[in-house]
């Protein structure tokens, strides 16, 4: 293995990892604020991919317009799911919320199958072409993917750390009751969190389409699960953690495949979940939460 080959494989890993990271951010944020594992999150990506597919192939929108529309649809879908399915259950036991999330996930997958058909829809890649970097051929799609995800994370960090809404989010995640007493609107803050998470999923969906220009009803489920593992690995609830977890899972997958062990790719990812849960259940950057009695 020479340097350029290793470099290419690292780029491959970072490209896949970027998508995982963006999806993992959505998982992490929602979990951080209402302790819900939003399993419909992966399927938001699927809906986003279909939106982009139809916008480009059927309505011949400019790719940039299609991306914008796609992110808006994802965001709205995320908020609608939150309002319709999760808000009425806010005071219900956690398990009810979780089962609802799985139900929504099935609803979206099967709804898409009904609406768009079970077959895979394929489109031309949104970004094509490649350049040579350090003796290795790197696609523009890969560079764009990595850049967009890093920029998204910077914006998100700014949003959470520096803005009023971000402050409200952090407050709600720390203590929901106290935040409410301080005059923070719970509904608004939670909806905002869902909106941001879903918008990131929308961006992730576009980046996914850059790498694999196909949409199918079940594309979100495996992607969602892997992103979830990434979120757990990084420390669920932590924004930089989700990013690190995503990149780590992506790199690991690329290296496992490069070593001709692609049969074990999924196995390795889920084995990591086991190891993390056994050794450090809070993940790399997770906070240690002491249960109050």
């Amino acid at each position: 293995m020479d340097f350029s080959l290793i470099f290419s494989q690292i780029i491959n890993g970072l490209q896949t990892g970027s998508v995982y990271a963006l999806v993992a951010l959505g998982y992490s944020m929602v979990y951080g604020i209402i302790l819900l594992l939003n399993f419909a999150h992966g399927d938001i990506i699927m809906v986003g991919a279909y939106t982009a597919f139809y916008a480009i192939t059927s309505f011949h929108l400019h790719p940039l317009l299609a991306v914008l529309l796609e992110v808006i649809v994802s965001t709205v879908l995320g908020v609608v799911i939150e309002k319709v399915a999760y808000t009425p259950l806010r005071s219900a036991p956690r398990l009810s919320l979780l089962i609802t999330a799985i139900g929504i996930s099935f609803l979206l997958e099967n709804g898409a199958q009904l609406l768009f058909g079970a077959d895979t829809k394929s489109m031309d890649p949104i970004v094509s072409g490649n350049m040579t970097l350090f003796g290795a051929s790197v696609s523009y799609a890969a560079l764009l993917t990595i850049a967009v995800s890093v920029i998204s994370m910077l914006i998100l960090t700014f949003l959470v750390q520096k803005t009023k809404l971000g402050k409200a989010m952090r407050a709600v995640s720390e203590d929901m009751g106290a935040a409410q007493l301080m005059g923070i609107s719970l509904n608004k803050t939670i909806s905002f969190t869902f909106a941001v998470g879903s918008a990131l999923a929308g961006v992730g969906s576009i980046l996914y389409l850059c790498a694999y220009p196909q949409a199918s009803p079940t594309m979100g489920s495996m992607l969602g699960l892997k992103a979830f593992v990434a979120a757990v690995l990084g420390g669920i609830g932590s924004i930089p953690g989700a990013m690190i977890g995503g990149f780590a899972i992506g790199l690991l997958e690329a290296l496992v495949s490069a070593a001709r062990l692609s049969m074990w790719k999924d196995g390795v990812v889920f084995a990591i979940l086991i190891v993390v849960l056994l050794v450090k259940p809070t993940g790399i950057l997770g906070r240690k939460i002491t249960e109050k009695v």
Partner: peptide, 8 residues
């Protein structure tokens, strides 16, 4: 769906 590593 991801064959990038093999293709590389």
């Amino acid at each position: 769906k991801d064959f990038k590593a093999q293709i590389t």
